[in-house]
Computed example of a mutant assay.
Amino acid sequence: MASRTLYQALAGTRKQLVVAPRTWMRTLSTAQGTPAAPESAPTLESLVPPTDALKKPIRRTINETVEPITPYNMTIAKLLAAGLHLGHSTSLWEPATLPFIFGTREGLSIINLEQTLVYLRRACNVAREIAVRGGTILFVGTRPGFQDLTIDAARQCEGYHVSGKWIPGTLTNAHQVLGRHAPPDPEDPGRAPKTYKPDLIVLLNPLENKIAISEAQLHKIPIIAITDTDYDPRRVTYPIPANDDSIRGVELIAKVISSAAKDGVFRRKHMLDQKVKETKFNRNENNFSRR
């Protein structure tokens, strides 16, 4: 009887010794590499973008994703990518542009972009200071392909634009040319409407607007202009040596100057708000002291 009990105990112990390794192997295999559950296949609705994204214009989407261009993040690499270093043929070379030329290659004059960046920043400082002082800025771009970028640059900084033909006498004979478009005086409707002259002109194609330059010089209005290697930079107040045939490059320069002017407009509004707050504060203090 005792031997049978001992035999059963030994048999149970043997079963445990045999089963244990199998359990351990099963646990190890489960921990090492159990195939994951298959993911659900994408549906057709998940692949289609939402309706709001489809209605959004592509140009607005690109403008939101791209970093805004300002005078502070402008580099020579961006000017080079826009093609602003390519000048005209050496046969059309203007000797006055010699300080701005880096060299020649295959019959073309190459503009030194280091000079372009320096003169562009100077023009941005001028536009910013004029906007801070409450001056008006006029963007002029009459060449085909420049109309849209001229209008966008003017709207960005709350300025004015001339995207069509420059009418002779716009500045020298403003009452006859612009008088019919000016609103009448509410206090005296019989008086001739008053016209205003810009404090700064940003000229994107000076070669086709010699009359505008002459009128601005008569009225002593400063001019910022893009001067290529075939144009005399001494005819304008603030030249920017660059390629004026590249639409992409001209748009880049116009955006940079417009952003600088927009910064000046923002600073002016901030200064005016501060003055109004200080005036109200001083008035309240005077009223309190009188009591």
Rank of each mutant, 00 (worst) to 15 (best):
T170G: 01
T170E: 01
T170H: 01
T172S: 15
T172Q: 05
N173E: 08
N173R: 08
A174W: 01
A174G: 03
H175T: 12
Q176D: 09
Q176T: 08
V177I: 15
R180E: 04
R180P: 00
A182P: 00
D185M: 05
P186Y: 12
P186I: 09
E187I: 08
G190R: 09
G190N: 11
R191S: 05
R191I: 07
R191F: 08
R191Y: 13
A192Q: 12
T195R: 02
Y196L: 10
K197H: 02
P198I: 03
L200V: 02
L200A: 10
L203N: 05
L204T: 06
E208I: 07
N209C: 12
K210A: 12
K210E: 09
I211S: 07
I211P: 01
I211W: 09
A212R: 01
I213Y: 05
S214T: 15
S214M: 13
E215Q: 12
L218I: 12
L218V: 14
H219E: 10
K220C: 07
K220L: 04
K220I: 02
I221F: 15
I221K: 13
I223N: 00
I223Y: 00
I224E: 02
A225F: 11
I226Y: 06
I226V: 10
T227P: 03
T227R: 04
D228H: 13
D228Q: 12
D230Y: 02
D230A: 12
D230K: 03
Y231F: 15
R234I: 08
R234A: 15
R235I: 10
